[in-house]
């Protein structure tokens, strides 16, 4: 089990997708998606609602079978070697899938046990500390704020250090501070060498986080490349002098105080 997680079969890419198709009834959601995600990168799949982002992620996470095409994750085919794929990945879905009746610590311990790791309790404490949840560790996850819940969700995904992490719209429904916290967590992951494939419909999120960006539209990848490469697709910008106004985000974060390295846990109860 552990061997699968630590020794990826030598391939050029962490994720390689060719001609992926998927239809639901008579709706063609994916019409031939090609994707190459280099290992250790943050790769953003950018697209509007209904573009096929979640469907792509669900196929890569072995939750859905493709109709056609191939997808290889960490050297394992998603349809024929699903169990090996699952040992290499973790998925954080659109809505924080935490057990609200269990405490944060119990949620993490459970995942560590299910990944068959030694010392689940120690791993849980470690993760709580890493995600600034130590104080809330013994409280039921149902009492967490949206940001805390999302942090717990991501912490649960990272138990066992899977080499590839899927984040499906990780900041949807979060307030600006919680969003920055999630961004910091994602950057830290990539710094540790984890490959991150995230979906987003926020352009700035892709711009801020991603090493490479692919734009998914109506079931096809329109373009992909680094931000600089994508910007070259349009004619060079003309230079204009504009008085720089603070953005609303700048104003908001200045007034309420931007989160520093260690995010402040807000005990407010929030439903998503």
């Amino acid at each position: 089990m552990l061997a699968d997680m630590t020794t990826p079969t030598p391939t050029q890419h962490a994720i390689q997708v060719r001609g992926l198709t998927k239809s639901f009834k008579d709706v063609e959601v994916l019409r031939g998606v090609d994707l190459d995600v280099p290992p250790g990168s943050i790769y953003a799949l950018l697209g509007s609602n209904g573009a096929g982002k979640t469907t792509t992620i669900r196929i890569l996470a072995t939750l859905l079978r493709p109709d056609g095409g191939t997808a290889v994750v960490n050297g394992h085919d998603v349809t024929t070697q699903a169990h090996d794929v699952r040992a290499s990945i973790s998925l954080t879905g659109q809505f924080a899938a935490v057990d609200e009746i269990l405490t944060g610590r119990e949620n993490l311990t459970l995942v560590a046990r299910l990944r068959h790791l030694p010392n689940p309790g120690a791993i849980a404490d470690d993760m709580l500390a890493r995600f600034s949840l130590t104080d809330a560790g013994n409280r039921r996850a149902g009492t967490y704020s949206g940001g805390m819940r999302r942090r717990l969700d991501i912490a649960m995904s990272l138990v066992g250090n899977p080499p590839i992490v899927f984040l499906d719209e990780p900041t949807t429904g979060l307030d600006p501070q919680a969003r920055l916290e999630v961004w910091a967590a994602v950057r830290e992951l990539a710094a540790r060498g984890t490959t991150v494939l995230l979906t987003t419909q926020h352009l700035d999120e892709a711009e801020q986080l991603a090493d490479r960006i692919a734009i998914l539209h109506e079931g096809r990848i329109l373009v992909d490349g680094t931000l600089a490469e994508l910007k070259q697709l349009l004619p060079a910008a003309t230079v204009e002098y504009v008085e720089k106004q603070p953005t609303l985000e700048d104003v908001f974060l200045t007034l309420v105080g931007a989160p520093t390295g260690a995010p402040t846990p807000t005990p407010a109860k929030e439903t998503r």
């Binding site: 699968d4 996470a61 939750l63 809505f95």
Partner: peptide, 13 residues
Amino acid sequence: DKGIVERFQSMPI
């Protein structure tokens, strides 16, 4: 409904 089953299903269990 809450995606817990999907979380478990995407793990090697």
